[in-house]
C-alpha cells in the first residue's frame, strides 16, 4: 500500500509517519512538507491513500483534495485539522475521512479499516 502524508510542520509529519508505520507496517510512505510536491508525486506514482493536514501552504488540504479528486477520482483522501469545524467543509469537498489533530492512532486505524483498503493479509 502506498501512502502519502502532508504537513508543513516536519515534527508533526514525522510523528504521523510513525503512527502510519504502526498501523500499516508494510506500506510505502512518502512524506511531504510541500503539498504541491505531494500532488505532483501522486500524479506520477501509484498511490492508495493521501493523509493531509488542512492548514498548509502554499495550498490548503482542501485544495489538495479538490485537485486530487479531479486527477485521481479513485484516490482516498483523509484530512486532518485541529479545528473540528473543518470537518463539514472536508466532507462537502468529498474527503473520505476527517480526523482532528493530534491524530489518535486508534481512530486512524479504524478509519483505514472502514475505508476497506487495509488488507489484513499483510503481516
Amino acid at each position: 500500500m502506498n501512502v502519502v502524508l502532508i504537513d508543513n510542520n516536519i515534527g508533526i509529519l514525522e510523528e504521523l509517519v510513525g503512527v502510519v508505520k504502526g498501523i500499516l507496517p508494510s506500506s510505502t510512505i512518502s512524506s511531504f512538507k510541500d503539498p504541491m510536491l505531494a500532488v505532483k508525486h501522486v500524479y506520477n506514482h501509484a498511490t492508495d491513500i493521501v493523509i493531509s493536514e488542512v492548514k498548509t501552504r502554499p495550498v490548503s488540504g482542501f485544495d489538495v483534495l479538490r485537485n486530487l479528486h479531479k486527477l485521481r477520482p479513485e484516490m482516498l483522501v483523509v484530512l486532518l485539522s485541529d479545528e473540528p469545524g473543518h470537518e463539514t467543509k472536508a466532507l462537502e469537498y468529498g474527503a473520505d475521512g476527517f480526523l482532528t489533530q493530534p491524530v489518535n492512532p486508534q481512530e486512524l486505524s479504524e478509519l483505514i479499516d472502514k475505508l476497506d483498503t487495509y488488507k489484513p493479509l499483510d503481516v
Binding site: M36, K40, Y43, N67
Partner: peptide, 12 residues
Amino acid sequence: WLQGDPIAINAY
C-alpha cells in the same frame, strides 16, 4: 494548478 492542470502540476 488549482484547476488540476497536469502541466502546472508537473511544472512545480
